[in-house]
């Protein structure tokens, strides 16, 4: 394990990058995904279509391909960001498709009477969604949304293919330099566990806090 402790600062930097990638991308994914879920249940067909295309395109293309297309392809049409920013955008958009589906299933779980009553009171669609349906819908899907965060944390490792120095990259560099892959594997697994287990715990807390008392 010496090789892990000798390179603790490198691991620390990788861990920080992975954590900030995960948190920032999840913020993007959550906002975007909730919005797309709203599109998918909206009364206006073209908006529903946009939501469907967004979801299906992003969740059916492998993440590595999305990274490649965005980082190397979009540059050719003038959309060029630094590796880290590119990674946040790609991971955020990719995960937003899954968030959208999760939130949509939450929306479907809210009794139809709730929305009908809100409409009867004269609320507009955005008001119905924002004040009546979503607050109930999101509470029911805290657990799957948490799982998405954990999946996203592990997906950040693909950012190393576009030159972001995160945990997987640190592992790769050190393994190549030292040839001690096994202890490094253990180290990198532990680092991911620190992130994912603590987020599991946080999700548990949130879930209990926002649970609908029935």
């Amino acid at each position: 394990m010496g090789v892990v402790f000798d390179n603790f600062d490198l691991f620390g930097r990788g861990l920080r990058t992975t954590a900030s990638l995960a948190v920032l991308s999840y913020l993007v994914a959550f906002v975007l995904g909730t919005f797309v879920a709203g599109l998918r249940v909206s009364p206006i067909p073209p908006l529903r279509w946009v939501g469907t295309v967004w979801t299906e395109a992003l969740r059916n293309i492998p993440l590595t391909v999305l990274f490649f297309v965005f980082f190397f392809g979009f540059t050719k049409i003038g959309i060029s960001y630094f590796p880290f920013t590119s990674s946040v955008i790609v991971l955020g958009c990719y995960t937003s498709a899954f968030v959208a589906e999760t939130v949509r299933s939450g929306i479907n779980s809210v009794a139809a009477g709730q929305a009908e009553a809100a409409r009867a009171l004269g609320l507009t669609f955005p008001q119905v969604l924002g004040t009546i349906v979503l607050p109930q819908a999101l509470r029911t899907v805290v657990a799957p949304l948490g799982s998405l965060f954990i999946a996203l944390t592990k997906n950040t490792s693909i950012a190393y293919t576009v030159a972001v120095v995160e945990l997987a990259r640190v592992f790769n560099d050190l393994a190549n330099q030292t040839g001690e892959a096994i202890p490094l594997f253990a180290g990198v697994a532990a680092a991911y566990l620190i992130l994912t287990l603590s987020s599991s715990a946080a999700i548990g807390v949130i879930e209990r806090k926002v649970a609908i008392r029935r």
Binding site: F72, K76, T161, V162
Partner: peptide, 15 residues
Amino acid sequence: ILFDTYSKCVEALKD
């Protein structure tokens, strides 16, 4: 900026 393949490096050079 390092990648896992040379073709990516060449793309990055083009860009």
